[in-house]
Amino acid sequence: MAEIKRKKMKVHSQAQVKRYTRSRFGNFFFFFCLFLFGAFSVIPLVYSIVTSFKPLDELLIFPPSLFIVKRPTLENYLILPSLIESLEVPFSIYAFNSLFVTTVGTVLHVLASASAAFVLSKSKIKYKNIIFMVVQLSLLFNAYTLMIPRYLIYSGMGIIDTLWAYILPAIPSSMGVFLMKQYMDGYVPDALIEAAKIDGAGWIRTFWTIIFPCVKPCLLTLTLFSFRDMWSLVPQGTIFSETLKTLPMVMSTVVSGGLARSGAAMANSVLMMIPPIIVYFISQGSLKESMSSAGIKG
């Protein structure tokens, strides 16, 4: 009897979710607002793409037309290879540096953040609250005045003018730990850890086999942030060798050269946006899937 009643309740409640908490007018209104804001947001992307197809004479028109190209051309893109060829160091080295620094930096940052966040969120380690508070508050300190002490520490570590000057500073960025810790606090039940402990798993194994898959949505989001930052990173005063420079550093000099190169500059910035956009769609596209497979509901 009770069983039947509960079933009825369930059917009833689902119907209510549809009927009472969502009105059709509300849905329409929501979508309209979203679309408006979205259209407003993509303007710079559209503008960059449109401008990259403009011939020189159209680039010089002021004010520039926002979305219209009268005679679209590929010349801004086609000129890039010849500009690159004149470099002293082969282009492939810059491309390799960029890919290496971005991937290694992102992977290490995400791993270090997730494992530290796990300890701060789920263990009873001494001083963990103090450590976490310091992590949080460090986000509120302006980075500019930290430049000199950081430079001294980098040179003490001997990483100036090596690829580590890109990677090491990125690993302990406080935002990653903060994000992962809040996520684990909110959505990884302590019962999971207890269960793993009863099964005799150590902390490292628990982290790797149970927590890591659970927090995939958050890992993907963090990967996305880190990739974007590392990809466009231009270090200040820590890299001097030409063979250690990355794409954003060299491309900004390649396409500099006043108005004549402004089309090429725009083509370059459109091309440079492509990798972060790809990473965005891969990571956000797999969000949904990881949600249902993680099994941490409830």
Binding site: A112, A116, L146, P149, L168, I171, P172, W203
Partner: peptide
């Protein structure tokens, strides 16, 4: 008993101390 916890925390904490806490304090 908890050495594994320290292993998990150490990479972040060491670099965080060196590259953020020290600079903030000295600033």
């Amino acid at each position: 008993q908890n050495w594994e916890l320290y292993v998990l925390l150490a990479p972040f904490l060491l670099l965080f101390f060196l590259l953020t806490v020290l600079p903030v304090l000295s600033s």
